[in-house]
Design a protein around this nucleic acid. Structure first.
Lengths: 338, 338
DNA sequence: ACTTGGCACTTAGGTGTGTTGAGTGCTAAT
DNA sequence: ATTAGCACTCAACACACCTAAGTGCCAAGT
């Protein structure tokens, strides 16, 4: 009863189950794989695997299906990542390269990934953490309404219309802008609040009120974390892959809608296997995802922002992991270029 | 066999079916409604209604369910809009008023509507059609990369990083900006291309290349139709209301993902009943929505942009129509104020 | 000219009983 | 440690039966 063979049996069970959606029995196993032993031997192995909690039988005397723990072992120790095909790679590159702006890149990426994996794809917007102030613009829409625009070193633009406490003159505004910009240009967004406070306290009483309001709005703009946004695509795949148990689709859709939940989930994922991180079934902190798996990985300079997919625990992990990793790489490359 | 009573019977069938999800028979009808006649009479009425194609029986001897045509008549001639409750109205107002910017308003609106109706809610971004150029900004990110920002009269900001054909000086750029702005400030987005063409042809050869690139990018920015964007929420409601026939949820999710499909659908909806427009089942041009209904209405100055919901044909039309109409009104009001 | 009670008829769905087939666990032999 | 053999289990299917809800229609009542 060799250990390597038991792992081989587990692998065979996982692969067969993923592709047939049905509990797999000892006899079917020896027929479909060259294991070189009889079904009785496999039965013994399966008994051990079941004792270890790696597989389970839905009812007495039926085939076995992998447990979360079984998938976990499969992913950690057995699965080899299947590289994408050449045409697939070229298609990815072509599609992403022709994107027009960040929104477009995100949109294309998420659609691409969902098509590639036949799962729900999720992409978090890149972090702004290390960005600094590059430019500030104030546009006088009305005497008491100003459009405040903040542009960061990576070219991200945040804007907002802000009501003023008193009427403002065009000249006064451009003066304020000049002084503000010269005191915060190049300052990291993270340290912006301090710099702004210093600036405000140095203001002459005459322009204090307006200056304070503007500084405050800039602080808010800097506080908008782009990484709190995400895009999603492929929810229709959920319906397809879950035809059997439509019960579970509701909670999953709910989780997907609660972007907060998804974002927390993504940010909690640490790199684990082969640069890709996998959460299987009940390993997910959120109850609604008890029968779902999440595969994600970081992208961009610090791999901080995440890209990933969500699907039923019964999924083709090797191929899906490969797709996620590949898309993350191309995404990093595209963002570097632009 | 009076006509008014037949309509009353249809109404009763629709109401009972919507709330019980089960085919409704003659006996149950007379018990639950005060129709003042016996079940046999109702049976006769039902036979006529069936002949007219307003109701149908799933199998030979079971109760009847309304057909698309039956719902249509119900909506057109019978339903009275049920006004929202006072607390509901106040909640809507409070929620929308505390929104921070346009994205926030859209997001809150769509979530609110989906909660209110227990359906999938969809909101199209407001049109920019009548907007004019208010402000232009060029930011030199690198000698050959410029961030072009276009601000319109309603405060919408479009921006884009544009590569330049040759290195550009800060002074040259601000000069170009001045001249561009003075020639297109106040110009409607629709007529921007002509004005820009005139501007370009009047340029001195020295700044022709750069000026042309910038003008072209502005033209593109003006061409980004905000109304091509929409937000969506409540897909999880689909799973809940469709527990019985999970078969049909797939196509519906697909339709929802194809924003192009949804946007076309919305823009094709003409106002029909009580200021709200309803598309029932196969009335929808898109096949995937054969078992779904869409209720939508316009909002904003010209009621051009649409807000609406999508749900199973078996839905509570009066209440849902009321919710859609109410939300559209509050949304119009909020956008007017800001 | 409608309405109504009565009645025969239809059918989905629930329940009970075999039957089958895939699969298991165990034991004894290799 | 492996294997053949065998008894056993159980979901799934098929078949038969029954019931409840519902219909359509007819003849009698208003």
């Amino acid at each position: 009863m060799s250990e390597p063979r038991r792992l081989e049996v587990l692998r065979a069970i996982v692969e067969d189950y993923v592709h047939s959606r049905e509990p797999v029995g000892s006899k079917a196993l020896v027929e479909r794989h060259q294991l070189g032993v009889s079904s009785a031997t496999i039965r013994n192995d399966m008994a051990v695997l079941e004792e270890e909690g790696l597989i389970a039988a839905p009812h007495t005397s039926s085939g076995r299906i992998p447990t979360d723990k079984g998938y976990r072992l499969f992913v950690d120790r057995i699965a080899e990542v299947k590289p994408l095909s050449g045409p697939e790679k070229r298609a990815i590159q072509a599609l992403l390269e022709s994107a027009e702006d960040l929104d477009d890149v995100m949109d294309r990426t998420v659609r691409l990934l969902s098509q590639l994996t036949n799962q729900v794809a999720v992409v978090q917007y890149p972090h702004l953490g290390k960005d600094a102030v590059r430019h500030i613009e104030f546009v006088l829409l009305a005497p008491v309404r100003i459009l405040v625009v903040l542009i960061t070193t990576s070219g991200a633009v945040q804007q907002r219309v802000v009501p003023m406490p008193e009427a403002v003159q065009e000249s006064e505004l451009s003066d304020l802008r000049q002084r503000l910009l010269s005191s915060v240009a190049g300052v990291r967004l993270g340290s912006l609040p301090q710099e702004l406070a210093a600036f405000v306290s140095a203001l002459p009483a005459r322009s204090r009120a307006v200056g304070k309001t503007l500084a405050h709005s800039l602080e808010q703009l800097a506080g908008i974390n782009r990484e709190d946004r995400m895009v999603m695509a492929g929810t229709a795949n959920l319906a397809r892959s879950t035809v059997d148990f439509p019960l579970s689709i509701g909670p999953v859709l709910e989780a997907l809608e609660e972007q907060v939940v998804m974002l927390r989930l993504l940010s909690e994922m640490k790199q684990d296997v082969l640069g890709v991180s996998v959460r299987i079934g009940r390993e997910n902190p959120y109850g609604g995802l008890a029968e779902a798996s999440v595969i994600a990985t970081g992208y961009g300079p610090d791999s901080l922002a995440k890209v990933g997919i969500l699907g039923p625990t019964r999924m083709d992990y090797p191929t899906t992991m490969a797709a996620v990793r590949a898309v993350a790489r191309y995404l990093s490359r595209i963002l570097d270029d632009s």
